[in-house]
Design a binder for these strands. Structure first.
Lengths: 342, 342
DNA sequence: CTGAAAGCGCTTACAG
DNA sequence: CTGAAAGCGCTTACAG
């Protein structure tokens, strides 16, 4: 099916030159005369020559492919990161292979192996929620540069590109305190989520630094931090004797579930209970009242991760263990603070 | 950096066999004795042998890579298609390279070239809105199997996997007629959008078959079919002497903009004006009232496209020009029909 | 049942 | 400034 493509050999024959010379001319090797270079390049473009990247990669032991592994490609935030990765990779001359782990540790390992087998030059990954055993990832690090983004882990010695989760959560809570809230609930994930842990840490620090007592009753942990769980947990919080006056849900979807339940019970938002999410997803401006949330600059996370990875690929000495934090900004909307004019 | 990997040569040396035999044993060639096969496979797995796919692909002129080109990866619907593609491709033993065209025809051509240069075995693409000149795409078809999905084109002779756009739109309009609407506006895109044209055709047919006169005044075309434009066009429709009693916006985002504007002017939805969108995006259940819309089964589109593509890759005789329609179902919600109990 | 050898398209040390 | 030759890791027609 594939049309026979123009090879170096063909060009060489046509020009009565050796393959070596043609190769060097195309690669602008200093040894070759300008004259020859011109001739070769002219013919190459006339015949529409495209180098066979596989032969090249095979020869040079370099594929110019970056492998990307994410839990779920359909999450809006993830897709914005991927956009950043694709753009930056194209700029740097790399192609991107994307795989999903679907939060399945076995599949994650499988995908990592496939990528190694594919001789990718480097790997970017966001680790699956259920990753307990990190041996497989450590093994990969021995073979190829790897950088974690968004869903990272302190236990893996490699560079990481993340949001300033702790600080952003801190700012969110401080904002609630500034508007006069004193009894702030949090809906977070169970202990195995990196992001949740960091945001929870920010929550705790904000309360502490503002001398607000921590009350375990309004610290809620759930397995999956979804809209449905947001609804259920809002119900639970409303059933407490001492209700919260603000709820920080560590994802927008949970926050939206919270708002929906509060509205159902005619709780005034933000006067009686303020709500904050995290992500600045599309939905956060559709829900009424619009949701105060933390914007996560996905594209910047993606492009930054590629920058560091390419650095590590092209200079193995640069392989490091640094954590780069991208700043996420609090976006204040009606769910915490109603402007005078609507 | 990359660890020296175990090659066939190494296995051969270790076992005192030839490279050919080892290769054949691993590939379950019938000529090789069971005994040898066992020995070879045992050692291979003990030494963690992974074939170098590049050498293999290079030798066999097959890369087992599928190239995917979409306008924008962050659109929810697109990301669900990609999920379907990734899953099905993994199942069939193919890896997926994804690129974005960002609706830029030049970039689209560039990306197609890169993919060819990469020797992808086949290409799946959703064509960019601004694709007028299709010569580049036709050139690609000569080189490698290509299948269009979602944003297709009658002008390109290749298989296509799409939603039953026309029929789905017809059903949507018929539903409006069934609930008693008689003056149904449409907000569509300008002439260069495949999807918009198909949905518009369904709109026209439904009106015609139900003997409803077509009124150009309530047929609105916009350049980009966004939430913002939805708002603006709703304003325009509300300013008409003879207002519509229903609005079909050919995307959910525009429909959401419409709803927001109607609410601002206290128009009762659906009693005074009903609203229908298209996509069943996440937002369609967040907006109030929840939006009636057409569900587009993205994953099925993706997996179906992969199935046909792999067929064409593996059997060049199967390369065809068929159009496969995946059925999108109307999901009736409060924006057109309020259930008795809310 | 097994092996020696050619070749996929490229790059590059070596020689001139 | 240019060329002949080796080799990247694999598969496969040919020979035995």
């Amino acid at each position: 099916m594939k049309k026979e493509s123009v090879s170096l050999k063909k060009l060489a024959q046509e020009l009565n030159l050796s393959i070596s010379t043609v190769s060097r001319a195309l690669n602008d090797h200093p040894d070759i005369s300008e004259d020859t270079k011109q001739k070769v390049k002219a013919l190459a473009s006339r015949l529409n020559y495209v180098p066979n990247i596989f032969a090249k990669g095979f020869r040079q032991q370099k594929t110019n492919i970056i492998g990307v592994l994410v839990p779920n490609i359909t999450h809006y935030f993830t897709s914005t990161i991927l956009k950043g990765i694709l753009d930056e990779a194209a700029l740097k001359g790399y192609r991107v292979i994307i795989s999903e782990s679907n939060n399945d540790a076995i599949k994650q390992t499988e995908m990592l192996n496939t990528m190694l087998q594919f001789n990718v030059d480097g790997i970017l990954m966001s680790i699956s929620k259920v990753t307990r055993d990190i041996d497989d990832i450590l093994r990969v690090i021995n073979n190829v540069p790897l950088i974690l983004f968004d869903k990272a882990s302190d236990k893996i010695p490699c560079s990481q590109v993340v949001i300033n989760e702790e600080e952003a959560a801190y700012n969110a809570i401080e904002h609630l305190i500034n508007i006069g809230k004193k009894r702030i609930a949090i809906i977070k994930e169970n202990e195995y989520s990196y992001n949740s842990e960091r945001r929870y840490a920010g929550y705790l620090r904000a309360l502490k630094e503002h001398n607000i007592a921590i009350d375990e009753k309004i610290i809620i942990s759930v397995d999956d931090i979804s809209q449905r769980q947001g609804k259920r947990m809002a119900n639970l919080l409303l059933s407490l004797k001492k209700k919260p006056d603000a709820i920080f849900a560590i994802t927008d979807s949970a926050a939206i579930g919270v708002i929906q339940t509060l509205k159902k019970f005619n709780v005034k938002i933000p006067e009686e209970i303020a709500v904050i999410g995290f992500s600045n997803s599309r939905n956060s401006t559709i829900i009424e009242p619009m949701l105060t949330t933390v914007d996560q600059p996905g594209q910047r996370i993606g492009s930054t991760a590629v920058k560091y990875l390419v650095e590590e690929i092209e200079d193995p000495n640069s392989i490091g263990n640094k954590t780069v934090e991208i700043k996420g900004n609090l976006i204040i909307r009606d769910s915490t603070f109603k402007a005078a004019v609507s």
